[in-house]
Write a protein that binds this DNA or RNA. Structure first.
Lengths: 341, 341
DNA sequence: TTGAAAGCGGTACCAG
DNA sequence: CTGGTACCGCTTTCAA
């Protein structure tokens, strides 16, 4: 069934059907009603490909996935994706996934060249990101999740990892902790310039210096085993450590397990704070004191930004820097009076 | 840039370019090379909308999301989505998300009517699922994740939740546990016929009966607070309970917290086993003994099944029923000799 | 081995 | 307020 059939049954021309449906030209109430009736009767929906070809827009936005680090994704990303799809639907856009594979740019390039999408949302951006450079050069509308090194020229929505980590450090310092370790994302991600990992580290260094604390930095792979090993190293390097701040969701369980194995109880002997999804923070016992990443809100904002840009490509780039508060849960407490061990 | 431009620069007709690229008609080696050269030079990729319109296929598959229960998704789903997108890319398909909103069918209907996708993959299927009925009636190619009540007429890939829960029960029975509770997905999901929840319960009842155990069933909402409350009820209803089997990922943290609060130590006084992603099982301390859901493999299989169906719509429906083994971790141990409390 | 041209199903301009 | 029609960019039949 196509627009021609609708036109015939309603005794009007194809263009009238098109206009009646789009509202881009006034149509008399009677014919409009008649057309609508036929449309409803047959459950007609315009063919998306034809429409895209003629209108020059696909009503689809591309979601560029992270290059599947170690072959799983984090919980943050999922909530984000869900909200993104919902938000897009509100604006009458569909979402096309682009997983990128090992070479993120080639898949992106194909998406643009084939004109499959009107705009793109890039997850897990790096400080220097070739995908961003490519999109800027191609003058293609996009929004990044996270900021690149020069964030003023682009649209983005990001979490202020620096501020959040600093807030965690401050919280711990207020509780009397003096020797704190930062458990970061994997070394490999730092090396390629992962935004959150870098800015988190900056915030850590800053806050540690400001409060006159002793801070140590530990990149850590994204799994429980590595988390456990990381705790071992931390306590080995400085047995007087009394607190950890973590950016690494996936290693969180391992951190708890490492502390348990080392005989440190949380939060009695040792405190942990971090940046995580609320859902995730509630998985561990005691629940993690953490800056709650508002993943769903980020998805919504990203879509809003992109849609605004699609409506007005010439407008100035806009951003949202989010700094959610630290939710106090059970994993942080006063520093032990005498450093254990 | 379009196919006409390529044709001009290569001094051939547009059809020759099309055939040279698709290989659907022999093209002399010399012209083919010439065309390829121009194509490479300009980085030409055929416009997807035009191609879809002319060819009658979109090279896109639709991924129908669960109706966002309580507005987050589970970890299983994310790994699944990632692998799905990767697998689709291998077959040269893109993946379009359809979140469905509260009314899952209407969004699906739109996807089909607008002819946005060639086939669909349905997540979180129900025993009686109107989306499935709709797709069957429309004779539209699809694969479900999970089985409906009459699974022989459809393509699906699913986990044998019944067998997995039964395996957990057996494992616990072998350890001497006699009074076991099943922590299931939310009441609401059971009521609407969630496949995994129902089949899990069946397997539980079966295994409990076979081993002559006392089994109790507890639906539980998908969050930590509910998990904690659920443990309270379990110990209240039967203080002699010594083990839990859970299908509820999201409540898992709450279960541990509830046990801790009740003074039961895991696995000394109390054992827990379940069905979960390995990643998730490793978050809790001690790590959860669980049947490891192979989410990534499921994504791959689902795409393979769908692609096979698209290639041969008349073929018989195929399925994969997966029953991964139970990985022994730290959360299960021998039943305490004297029932505590 | 190649070219010309008729669609695919819409949109939007130009007339009336 | 409405109809006719020329595109959008590609695929595929028909003819040479």
């Amino acid at each position: 069934m196509n627009i021609g059939e609708i036109a015939q049954r309603a005794n009007v021309s194809r263009s009238t059907v098109s206009y009646a449906l789009s509202g881009k030209r006034p149509v008399s109430e009677t014919t409009r009603r008649k057309i609508q009736q036929v449309v409803d009767e047959l459950g007609y929906q315009p063919n998306a490909s034809a429409r895209a070809l003629a209108a020059g827009r696909t009503s689809t936005i591309g979601l560029v996935f992270p290059p599947a680090v170690g072959h799983h994704y984090t919980a943050m990303q999922l909530d984000f994706i869900g909200s993104l799809a919902d938000a897009a639907a509100v604006h009458e856009y569909d979402v096309l996934l682009s997983t990128a594979g090992p070479d993120s740019t080639s898949s992106l390039r194909r998406l643009l060249a084939e004109r499959r999408v009107d705009g793109a949302i890039l997850m897990e951006v790096r400080l220097a990101d070739e995908r961003v450079d490519y999109l800027l050069e191609a003058d293609f509308p996009f929004v990044t999740i996270g900021r690149t090194a020069s964030p003023d020229r682009t649209c983005w929505v990001g979490v202020d990892h620096g501020a959040l980590v600093a807030a965690c450090v401050d919280h711990l310092a207020d509780l009397g902790h003096r020797r704190i370790a930062l458990v970061n994302r994997p070394e490999r991600l730092l090396r390629i310039g992962y935004e959150s990992a870098h800015r988190g580290l900056e915030g850590f260094d800053r806050a540690v210096a400001a409060r006159g604390l002793t801070g140590r930095h530990y990149p850590c792979d994204d799994d429980a085993v590595s988390g456990q090993a990381c705790v071992e190293r931390i306590l080995d390097d400085d047995p007087a450590s009394t607190a950890i701040v973590t950016l690494n969701e996936a290693a969180l369980g391992g951190l708890y397990q490492g502390l348990a194995r080392a005989g440190r109880s949380v939060p009695g002997d040792f405190s942990i704070a971090g940046v995580a999804l609320p859902h995730w923070a509630q998985m561990v016992t005691p629940q993690l004191t953490a800056a709650d990443v508002p993943a769903a809100q980020m998805g919504r904002l990203a879509v809003d930004l992109l849609v605004a840009r699609l409506d007005d490509p010439a407008g100035p780039p806009r951003h949202h820097l989010l700094a959610p508060p630290v939710s106090l849960r059970g994993s942080t407490g006063p520093a032990p009076l005498a450093p254990s061990s």
